[in-house]
């Protein structure tokens, strides 16, 4: 719910002083809107109209068939379902794996606690290129890329591994801000430490968990490099890689409208998430930094 704000009377003198700032920001926002709006409009036009540069006036009406075509003919539906599946499963498992670890790191003093936290923080700065070769070598030698399901498993495993350090560190900060009195009360009531965590603390950390999950979802949805290397066939590719191969193909078929429709389909899920949850997403960006 939006909080009701008291109307601040417009102080024209102050606003005038801020005018240069307004101009910069408004131009910036305008450009972003034109960029995204044009692509969206183009996805509803005919390729011929795009080339005549008459995208916003829709001289031949709205062409939703671009979407139907892109969705059906160009594998977009496969890429889309793949990405959806990978993202959901990885996000859920990430929480199951990272939340308990984060809780222990935030609450218990033991040998190695600091070391683990420092390692996780440094892992966030390690370029993928530094880990990808051995991963590929081991996974290929285990013959995991030969069957569809083991290949899917590999992708989910990697998405989890790559995002685990950030998720853990983010949640560690979050858990350390929850008062200890809750577990103390739970323990007095006869809860085991792990029972206290799952029944009392975990539900209380909901906001933090939701925030980091949205962030993970967007990251995994947009992940490119690992998917490019590890997804072995079109059947397994997520949207980012699939879109790339489609764009390369569309250059030859000349179906620009279809290409923009595909771009829109790829971009829409994260965009819709963002429309509703931009505050949370922005919070996750800066929240993960203070490690």
């Amino acid at each position: 719910m939006k909080e009701k704000r008291e109307r601040v009377p417009v102080n024209w003198h102050k606003e005038l002083r801020l005018l240069p700032g307004y101009i910069v920001v408004i131009l910036w926002v305008l450009f972003t809107f034109v960029l995204l709006g044009w692509v969206f409009a183009a996805s509803l036009s005919k390729t011929a109209d795009i080339f005549k540069n008459r995208v916003f006036s829709f001289p031949t009406g709205l062409h939703f068939e671009n979407y139907i075509k892109a969705w059906g003919a160009s594998n977009v539906s496969t890429f889309f379902t793949n990405s959806l599946g990978y993202s959901f499963i990885s996000c859920a498992l990430l929480i199951l794996i990272c939340a308990p670890a984060a809780y222990v790191l935030a609450r218990f003093a033991f040998k190695g606690n600091k070391l683990i936290q420092t390692s996780f923080v440094s892992a966030m700065g390690v370029p993928v290129i530094m880990v990808v070769l051995p991963l590929f070598s081991v996974i290929a030698r285990l013959n995991l890329l030969s069957s569809t399901w083991s290949n899917r498993f590999v992708l989910v495993f990697l998405y989890i591994g790559i995002n685990a350090p950030y998720t853990t560190i983010f949640l560690t900060t979050f858990f350390s801000n929850i008062s200890r009195t809750y577990e103390e009360a739970a323990t007095i009531d006869g809860c085991t430490p792990s029972g206290a965590f799952w029944k009392v603390i975990f539900p209380m950390a909901q906001t933090g968990i939701v925030t980091v999950t949205i962030f993970n979802f967007i990251n995994i949805w947009n992940e490119y490099f690992l998917s490019l290397i590890f997804a072995n066939s079109d059947k397994l590719r997520p949207v980012a890689v699939g879109l790339y191969s489609m764009i390369s193909a569309m250059k030859y078929t000349g179906d620009w409208a279809g290409m923009f429709a595909a771009v829109t389909i790829v971009f829409l899920p994260t965009f819709i998430l963002y429309l509703f949850l931009s505050e949370k997403i922005i919070g996750a960006v800066t929240g993960g930094l203070k490690g």
């Binding site: 308990p100 790191l105 070769l133 051995p134």
Partner: peptide, 30 residues
């Protein structure tokens, strides 16, 4: 408590070792 701590930490630490620590060392060797 110790068992509990290890049980809670293990999955995340194992992921870290598999996806970061071991590959980094091996890349360095390679």
């Amino acid at each position: 408590n110790r068992k509990f701590i290890i049980g809670f930490l293990a999955p995340a630490v194992i992921m870290f070792i598999l996806v970061f620590l071991y590959p980094i060392i091996r890349t360095l060797m390679m």
